[in-house]
């Protein structure tokens, strides 16, 4: 079967982001290769060392990041469903999660006893990662819109033994607006926004077919509404991480730049264990603040991962 290809406009846009020809070719090559088998240890149920020891008896497992022993990579060919059917997965000892998607929670750095809001929480990979960092203390509000997605979220929270969560069903904009009105404020917020998914080509080849610039533009408008309302629920000095699994600047720096122009926020430096590139400061004739360079762009060819975008913002004063 022929490999799916990028639509011409998508390809043109990626070439603008990846100016070096070899860089673009590397990107175009890796997006057709299945992603690696990353898992994350759930320390609510087992220690990283105990899990590593158990899994090493069965598979070739490595821990690529010394500072993050919970991140493990199974470096061998696996049968379909093998990771999901393992006893340790059934018991909730680990979560199958692409390494890029772990980066937004690493940037957010949730701590015990904090109040954290995860606005677009399903299916729960990042939510369970947050709960793990909070060690089931504080309060974690996990929201999503659709009931079928919430059922998956709930099943994953149960499997991982998450007990500090309140799962709500609302559209993100309405939820944040009502929370802010009633003065429910959070120390930290994760806004892992619905996006065009350009970073998920390796695991979801349907993105090649579904990509459409009109969708990118529509999503960008929705993402701006989401971040504008999310910021109103943040305590002064609190942190929001905005992330997507896409490369489109309209959905990334364009949204963060909008937040910076309209709200009292400061873009924070991010430290991640993956190689990342600085954010773009101009795109399709639009100029963004130089502060956007503090955003992190993760390209699949840099880490043999999927693609991702992360930005961290701090609220400096109350939003009236």
């Amino acid at each position: 079967m022929a490999k799916p290809q990028m639509k011409p406009l998508f390809e043109e846009r990626m070439k603008k982001l990846l100016l070096d020809e070899k860089d673009f070719n590397d990107f175009n090559e890796i997006i057709h290769i299945k992603p690696l088998n990353y898992i994350r240890c759930n320390t609510l149920k087992i220690s990283c060392n105990d899990l590593f020891e158990r899994l090493s008896k069965r598979w070739n497992v490595v821990r690529p990041f010394e500072k993050y022993p919970e991140i493990m990579l199974v470096e061998q060919e696996l049968k379909p469903g093998e990771l999901g059917n393992a006893i340790e997965h059934i018991l909730g000892y680990y979560y199958i999660q692409e390494v890029c998607s772990m980066m937004s929670v690493i940037a957010l750095d949730p701590k015990e006893n904090e109040r954290v809001l995860d606005i677009c929480a399903s299916p729960g990979s990042k939510t369970t990662q947050i709960a793990d960092k909070m060690q089931n203390s504080g309060t974690l509000i996990a929201n999503d819109l659709k009931l079928d997605r919430l059922r998956i979220l709930s099943a994953n929270l149960e499997r991982c033994g998450v007990m500090n969560s309140v799962v709500t069903r609302n559209d993100g904009v309405g939820l944040c607006s009502r929370l802010a009105k009633d003065n429910f404020k959070f120390d930290k917020i994760l806004l892992d926004a619905p996006c065009s998914g350009e970073g998920t080509l390796r695991s979801s080849s349907k993105t090649f077919l579904m990509w459409n610039v009109k969708v990118v533009e529509k999503l960008s408008r929705e993402q701006k509404k989401l971040i504008a309302n999310a910021l109103k629920c943040l305590k002064v000095g609190g942190t929001i991480v905005y992330s997507t699994c896409t490369h489109s600047p309209e959905e990334n720096e364009g949204v963060v730049n909008f937040a910076m122009k309209n709200f009292p926020v400061q873009i924070e430096e991010i430290y991640l264990p993956l190689k990342f590139r600085i954010g773009v400061i101009s795109w399709n004739g639009e100029e963004y603040s130089k502060e956007m360079e503090k955003c992190a762009r993760i390209y699949p060819q840099d880490n043999n991962s999927e693609g991702f975008f992360v930005a961290k913002l701090k609220l400096l004063e109350e939003i009236k």
């Binding site: 929201n143 919430l150 709930s154 309140v166 709500t168 069903r169 609302n170």
Partner: peptide, 8 residues
Amino acid sequence: ITNIEFIG
């Protein structure tokens, strides 16, 4: 103010 579906 929110539709709580599940707790804990």
